[in-house]
Structures are given as C-alpha cells and as structure tokens.
C-alpha cells in the first residue's frame, strides 16, 4: 500500500505520515516513510511518502494507491505519483504562493480541479473549515487522515489508526484529534 501526502511546509503533513506509518506497523506491516524536512519547510512544497512492505521509502511515479493532499494545487502537482484512477483526497483550502501575488505565476483553481478529477477518483473536501468547526484548524492533519480512512479503501485497521494517533499526539490533544478523525470520516461518507 502506497500513500502520498502532499502539502505546504507548516501544515502538519509529517504527523499525518507518522500516524499512517505507525498504524501500518501496528497491523504487522513493514512500514516506512520518506519525508521532506529542511529548507522547503518555509512555505515550500512538501511531500511524505508512506509505504508498507517496500525496501525504498520513496513511491515510484504512477504507483501510489492514494494521494492525500493538504492543499489544492499541491494535489495536482503530485498527481504523477498516483496510479491511474487512484483515490485522491484533496483539501480544497488554498494557500496562494507569493509568486502569484508577484505576477510570476497563476493559480487556476478550475483547471486544477478538472485535472485532478480527470485523472483520479477525486474527493474534494474543505478540511480547514471542518477542522475550525470542531475547534482547531491545527487538527486538519488528523481530520484528513480520518477522511483517507473513511473511504474504506485503506488496507489499515481503523483501530490501529486511532491507536497510532494516541501514540503520536500529546495526551491533552487526544480528544481533539479523535474528534477530528471522526469528522474527517464523516466528511467523505456524506
């Protein structure tokens, strides 16, 4: 099972990746991830590769079973990793890069959505709004993990993900993150 997580530095993609890998491990798989840490943290593009039962921590192009994007255009940017017709769970919240305001590039939301829809089994959700509703935009990462899980297509047990959340989040935030996870599941089941 290969899951590619994409987003913008600072959005909390690494925690989501850690939770999914930890859950895979709890299910008895040889889990591994490949992260982007460093310069791109500063508002640049970030991706996390989450894999079970492979040697290399990086997903080949066209092989990811699921693309989980924390930001709209970053979802499109990483479509080449997704297998044809694979599942794309896309947060519709936009983070417009500075290059757009400076006139050096454009952010064409409709074209981006169309490209994602044409290539994948796309699920667009406003995860930021949903996270704000349950109390904190910061919980958007566990909410998106909930959405990824809620489709019922991941080869990971729900209980393992919940246990992984408890293992990787400070105890005082367990309750918030469990609610965020459930809210994510509910969003894709509507």
């Amino acid at each position: 099972m290969d899951i590619l997580i994409s987003g913008v530095g600072g959005q909390g993609t690494i925690l989501a990746s850690k939770i999914l890998a930890c859950a895979m491990m709890l299910d008895g798989h040889n889990a591994r991830t490949g992260e982007t840490i460093g310069m791109s943290q500063r508002g640049g593009c970030v991706v996390s590769h989450v894999r079970s039962d492979a040697n290399s921590p990086y997903i080949p192009l066209g092989k990811a079973d699921m693309l989980l994007s924390f930001e709209l255009c970053e979802g499109a940017r990483n479509l080449p990793f997704l297998k044809k017709g694979g599942v794309a769970v896309i947060n519709t919240a936009k983070i417009t890069p500075l290059t757009v305001a400076l006139g050096a590039s454009t952010y064409d939301e409709d074209a981006i959505r169309a490209a994602i829809t044409a290539r994948s089994d796309a699920h667009f959700i406003d995860a930021n709004a949903a996270a704000a509703e349950i109390g904190s935009v910061k919980a958007v990462n566990t909410l998106l993990v909930g959405a990824a899980c809620g489709l019922g297509l991941l080869d990971i047990r729900r209980e393992s993900i919940l246990e992984a959340i408890r293992m990787n989040v400070a105890p005082k935030f367990h309750e918030l993150n469990e609610r965020a996870f459930a809210a994510g599941e509910a969003l894709v089941r509507k």
């Binding site: 913008v8 530095g9 310069m39 500063r42 508002g43 640049g44 080449p80 074209a111 981006i112 044409a118």
Partner: peptide
C-alpha cells in the same frame, strides 16, 4: 511508455520556500 499524468497546458503556481 508512461502516460502523462497532467495536461500539458496545466500551469501550476511555483512555490519556492520563502521567509515566513
């Protein structure tokens, strides 16, 4: 031969790292 995953005319905004 791998198929192109993105339409060739799709322009995505550049997102270099920036000061926060």
């Amino acid at each position: 031969k791998s198929e192109a995953a993105l339409p060739s005319d799709l322009k995505l905004p550049a997102r270099p790292p920036v000061l926060c």
